[in-house]
């Protein structure tokens, strides 16, 4: 059984974000980088399938498109238990729209015979929630999005899809299939030191993005702007003592006890 996991590297979104010179995306220099949270669930799920079915029964490839920095994210996925990593080198990946990213992934995966492809349901930075479904469409795979539970059988997979208000749908899909992973699917493991060391000996293949056919963009970014500020919040800042005192006063005035 061959599994492909698609991951994206994103910046630390809690940092101060500035618009880049181009005006269409954030300036990522000097920001901490990490794996998109939804993709961590995908990596964890692939590794769990490997543990369930036997290490020699399941082969997990993790793929990421992006600049040289994404190898750090790929190494984390290897340390979590993926077998090999594929880096599709593209300094301009941030300019690409979901249809282009999906086309590149599909071009890579087309002749590899993956039985299962796992992706995050969306990225935390752009949140388009398109890439997984678009890859499936290109490869003619069955596809279930927003998966919070899954049970792998020999030729099919039964999943729970999360709907609104706590309702779930149980859905079956034959392999090959693609699933997009939602929060709560599992609790991703932290790589242990021995596994980080072991990961250093794992295969990390690198391709130039030009090697894969990529269509023209379907969406153009006109601008990146701060959201309209209503700005009505009273901001309390300063030393902790001062903030605590001011805040306590407000809370006391409104408590019900």
């Amino acid at each position: 059984m061959k599994i492909l996991v698609c991951v994206k590297q994103i910046v630390d979104l809690e940092a101060r974000l500035r618009v880049n010179d181009d005006g269409t995306w954030i300036d990522c220099s000097d920001l901490a980088l990490r794996m998109n949270e939804y993709d961590e669930y995908a990596v964890e799920q692939a590794v769990r399938f490997k543990e369930q079915c036997g290490a020699d029964q399941v082969d997990v490839t993790v793929l990421s498109i992006g600049a040289a920095t994404v190898t750090e994210t790929l190494k984390k996925a290897l340390a979590m238990g993926c077998d090999r990593a594929v880096h599709i080198n593209d300094d301009a990946a941030w300019r690409k729209d979901p249809a282009q990213i999906a086309a590149i992934i599909a071009a890579f995966a087309a002749d590899k015979g993956f039985d299962l492809i796992l992706a995050g349901m969306q990225s935390q930075d752009r949140g388009s929630a398109q890439v997984g479904a678009l890859v499936a469409q290109r490869l003619d795979y069955g596809c279930v999005t927003t998966v919070i539970d899954c049970d792998l059988q020999p030729d099919k997979i039964t999943v729970r899809r999360e709907l609104e208000g706590g309702l779930k749908a149980v859905v079956e899909v034959k392999l090959p299939a693609l699933l997009t992973c939602q929060l709560g699917l599992n609790t991703p493991r932290y790589p242990t030191l021995p596994n980080i060391m072991k990961a250093k000996r794992k295969e990390l293949l690198s391709f130039d993005v030009e090697e894969f056919a990529c269509p023209d963009p379907l969406v153009r970014t006109v601008a990146l702007t701060p959201p309209p500020r209503k700005g009505s919040a009273l901001i309390i800042e300063g030393g902790n003592d001062e903030v605590a005192a001011q805040l306590a006063k407000i809370l006391v005035a409104r408590r019900v006890a």
Partner: peptide, 27 residues
């Protein structure tokens, strides 16, 4: 083309939140 999670529409395009809603893209 697909544009996800539209929160406003203006003459320039469709506005969508990004980066935990700290910014908006106009697409």
């Amino acid at each position: 083309a697909q544009i996800s999670e539209v929160v406003a529409i203006s003459a320039d395009g469709y506005e969508v939140p990004c980066c935990n809603a700290k910014l908006r893209r106009v697409l």
